[in-house]
């Protein structure tokens, strides 16, 4: 799952623009990623100018 650091986010929308699945919802001061639609392609993580997004490490069962 992609994690959002809401304290770093500037709500600029760069992540939304590169999301091929339209999984990101951005209003004035909120950013949400729909875990169902998201395929973790990492586009948003790479394109973010501020290191807001990261992939949560996958824990072994």
């Amino acid at each position: 799952m992609i994690q959002i650091d809401k304290y770093k986010c500037d709500f600029c929308g760069t992540c939304v623009s590169v999301c091929p699945h339209d999984a990101i919802e951005l209003s004035e001061t909120t950013l949400e990623i729909d875990p169902v639609t998201c395929t973790e392609c990492m586009n948003c993580v790479k394109a973010c100018p501020l290191h807001v997004l990261s992939e949560e490490p996958v824990h072994a069962e």
């Binding site: 600029c12 623009s17 590169v18 339209d22």
Partner: peptide, 17 residues
Amino acid sequence: VESRVGRWAGLKTHVRM
């Protein structure tokens, strides 16, 4: 740049990396 209006109408407007 974060446009979703077009996408909702079926236009493919996301930006390539």
